[in-house]
Simulated assay, not measured.
Amino acid sequence: MDFGLQGKTALVFGAGGGLGGAIATSLSREGAELFCADINLEAAEHTASSIRSAGGRATALEWDLADLGVIAGHIAQIEAKNGGVDVLVNNTGGPPPTPAAGQSPELWQQHFQSMVLSVIAVTDAVLPGMRARQWGRVITSTSSGVIAPIANLGISNALRMALVGWSKTLAREVGRDGITANIILPGRIGTKRIQFLDEQKAKRENRPVQEVIAESTGSIPVGRYGHTGEYGDTVAFLASARAAYITGSTIRVDGGLINSI
């Protein structure tokens, strides 16, 4: 199946991590040229180098999403090299595990800027080019917590939910411009983030981490954590020309974990 991504330019955030790196790799396999953005330039370059070694085209960018002042310069750099961003994958890091109550306004503000305002500002920066070309994909990765809030992830649950409302509203505004906007959310995908959360839970509950993992995978209908490539391939399909009629949607990649319709 031809995804129609040959000649397209994709900007993927968090591309140095497990999910972001898998997304960038999947998009590259379908012919897109990648800009791999991450706060850790070495990690971004690792993903970009891997893509280039496989015959793809990729550039690493050091990009701190908490710094809104760098957006214009980075987008201008991409536009000067490639003419603009066709596929934007908003994939931010997650805040530390916390209860919802008792967190300082400063902590809320810090993560609101890096997880929500940054996504909105970057998207606003690339939309004029997408509208001019009458083609674009805005894909925002969130968390299963936006459907079924996860215990002790109060900040994440709240802030990622804001992105769901924003994306749905955006989809209605840009649909006639050939642009789609969708939310994709992972269940428990085997990344360092999931490993960290499992370790933190084991520590809080004074249990062996393997016991926590067994309990966690036991609650998933397919009986395992997801593979990062499975997540990346789903994003690649949503970015494709084949998915032009899918917009304003929330797509779960969770192995059946979320216990709701």
Results as ranks from 00 to 15, higher is better:
residue 2 D to Q: 11
residue 4 G to E: 13
residue 9 T to W: 06
residue 11 L to V: 09
residue 13 F to I: 04
residue 14 G to W: 01
residue 14 G to E: 07
residue 16 G to P: 13
residue 20 G to E: 06
residue 20 G to I: 04
residue 20 G to F: 02
residue 21 G to Y: 04
residue 22 A to P: 01
residue 23 I to L: 07
residue 23 I to A: 13
residue 25 T to F: 02
residue 25 T to G: 05
residue 26 S to G: 06
residue 26 S to H: 07
residue 27 L to G: 00
residue 29 R to K: 14
residue 29 R to Y: 04
residue 29 R to V: 11
residue 30 E to K: 13
residue 31 G to S: 09
residue 34 L to V: 09
residue 34 L to K: 08
residue 35 F to Y: 15
residue 35 F to H: 08
residue 38 D to L: 04
residue 39 I to G: 06
residue 42 E to R: 15
residue 42 E to K: 15
residue 42 E to P: 08
residue 52 R to L: 05
residue 52 R to Y: 10
residue 54 A to H: 13
residue 60 A to N: 02
residue 61 L to Q: 11
residue 62 E to A: 12
residue 64 D to S: 08
residue 64 D to R: 10
residue 66 A to H: 02
residue 68 L to N: 02
residue 69 G to I: 06
residue 69 G to F: 03
residue 70 V to L: 00
residue 74 H to N: 10
residue 78 I to K: 04
residue 78 I to N: 03
residue 80 A to F: 07
residue 84 G to I: 06
residue 85 V to Q: 01
residue 92 T to V: 15
residue 92 T to P: 11
residue 93 G to N: 13
residue 93 G to W: 01
residue 94 G to A: 14
residue 95 P to D: 11
residue 98 T to P: 04
residue 98 T to S: 07
residue 100 A to Y: 14
residue 101 A to H: 06
residue 102 G to F: 10
residue 103 Q to E: 14
residue 104 S to V: 08
residue 107 L to K: 09
residue 108 W to G: 07
residue 114 S to M: 06
residue 115 M to E: 10
residue 115 M to A: 03
residue 117 L to Y: 02
residue 118 S to H: 05
residue 120 I to K: 00
residue 121 A to D: 09
residue 122 V to W: 00
residue 124 D to H: 09
residue 126 V to R: 02
residue 132 A to G: 08
residue 133 R to V: 07
residue 134 Q to L: 08
residue 134 Q to P: 00
residue 136 G to K: 01
residue 137 R to M: 05
residue 137 R to L: 04
residue 148 A to Y: 08
residue 152 N to S: 10
residue 154 G to L: 03
residue 154 G to I: 02
residue 161 M to V: 05
residue 165 G to W: 12
residue 166 W to P: 00
residue 167 S to R: 00
residue 168 K to Y: 12
residue 170 L to C: 04
residue 171 A to N: 08
residue 173 E to Q: 08
residue 174 V to H: 05
residue 176 R to W: 12
residue 176 R to T: 15
residue 176 R to F: 14
residue 176 R to I: 14
residue 178 G to V: 12
residue 181 A to R: 03
residue 181 A to K: 01
residue 182 N to Y: 02
residue 183 I to Q: 01
residue 184 I to Y: 12
residue 185 L to C: 09
residue 186 P to F: 02
residue 186 P to Y: 05
residue 191 T to W: 04
residue 196 F to M: 09
residue 198 D to N: 15
residue 199 E to A: 15
residue 200 Q to R: 09
residue 200 Q to T: 13
residue 208 P to G: 14
residue 209 V to E: 02
residue 214 A to D: 14
residue 220 I to W: 05
residue 226 G to Q: 08
residue 228 T to D: 12
residue 229 G to D: 10
residue 230 E to Q: 14
residue 233 D to W: 05
residue 234 T to L: 09
residue 237 F to K: 06
residue 238 L to S: 11
residue 239 A to R: 03
residue 239 A to N: 03
residue 241 A to E: 15
residue 242 R to V: 10
residue 242 R to M: 11
residue 246 I to E: 15
residue 249 S to L: 12
residue 249 S to N: 11
residue 250 T to K: 06
residue 259 N to E: 15
